[in-house]
Nucleic acid binder design. Sequence first.
DNA 1: AGCTAACCTGACCAGCCGGTCATGTTGTGC
DNA 2: GCACAACATGACCGGCTGGTCAGGTTAGCT
Lengths: 212, 212
Amino acid sequence: MTGTAAGAGQRADMVRNRRLLLGAATAAFAERGVEVSMGEIAQRAGLAKGTVFRHFASKEDLLAAIMLQLLDRLTSTADRLLHADDAAAALREFMTTGVEALAADRAFCEVVGRPSLQHPEVRAAINHLCDVAEALTARARERGAVRDDVTGTDVVLLLGGIHQTAAPLLAAQPQAWRRYLELALDGLHVPNAGALPEQPPCRLPRHVPEST
Amino acid sequence: MTGTAAGAGQRADMVRNRRLLLGAATAAFAERGVEVSMGEIAQRAGLAKGTVFRHFASKEDLLAAIMLQLLDRLTSTADRLLHADDAAAALREFMTTGVEALAADRAFCEVVGRPSLQHPEVRAAINHLCDVAEALTARARERGAVRDDVTGTDVVLLLGGIHQTAAPLLAAQPQAWRRYLELALDGLHVPNAGALPEQPPCRLPRHVPEST
DNA sequence: AGCTAACCTGACCAGCCGGTCATGTTGTGC
DNA sequence: GCACAACATGACCGGCTGGTCAGGTTAGCT
């Protein structure tokens, strides 16, 4: 699942190196995006390049492992919020956490926003996140806090959009995303709203490679 | 301004090749994004790689020329809409055109959304677009069609955000952006809205290269 | 302590990139 | 139709990338 099987019965130095590697990769992808080289990741971890490829067969696998970690964290946040008292506040907190996570990690944005570089497991994790977000959204919907035809997938997609809106300002105003989150939330619960155009999305489609 | 000076007194085949090159580059950047290679652009144009570098000193220059073209087109659309009767409809049409342009061009999204790859001229053109958008927004604001503290730069930034929201659906629902445009427009003119958090942006900041 | 398999290492490879330049070709003014 | 400058060409360069592997090192068991 996560690169080369990480089962028990491994040498102590190997599990230590694995921790170093995952830490370095997480930081490197966050700062530099998916384009960061395996060489740089190895260097940050204080390991040789070959060692990195011993733990993960390819760059794609390593990236997927890191992304799954981030997605799982977000999903469990959503899970927890499912039991909150105030459904509207819970949805707001979920979106805040989500946009914050995107703002702090370049690779996360790139992977979530571009279907073409999604590992199957990553897509599955995103779809799972959409499911939990749907539950969260449904509760807010029942309480009249969001308009009728907004789905959990809408909410998840909005995370990427909100962050992207603020991205060009990130260096100058690191919190600018709050502005656009508020704007989106206002749009999400306008009282007497007409139905939104286009089909409400349920899951993310599989990516079909371009022609040409 | 646009690569090697494109003044008069040039050989006929050169101006023809230049047209071919610009056409190929426009299509290539739109389909494949900024990562497309100069070799592929040359091939599409039916030219040798060296010829491409005779017309534009670097890939960055070529990209900037294409992006300036797109930005100019959008800016003149906004300029035209400045004289429309219905200010609210004009703003909506501007945003529709903008998001449509982004949805049709990968490189456009990447350049507009990531300050780090902005040529100085491109940033200037974006700022100019923000100015015109501000005029457009001001008119809508006076008529009560958008809330008080929304600037033209907000509107321009929203174009990128709206497109990004729909981007993962692009293959399956090419028009999905209309859904999120409507949502944003609803958010933009909620009647009794409180002030948005964070400073309203005026211009895009210059990009400061990362540390590390 | 000694042995072995598991593990780490870094030189190495092929492939791609942006960019250059000596050479060949061609439009154009006379 | 000639001559020359302007232009096109594609082989070539250095640098970077993801990925491989023969050989050295070491953890852990006996």
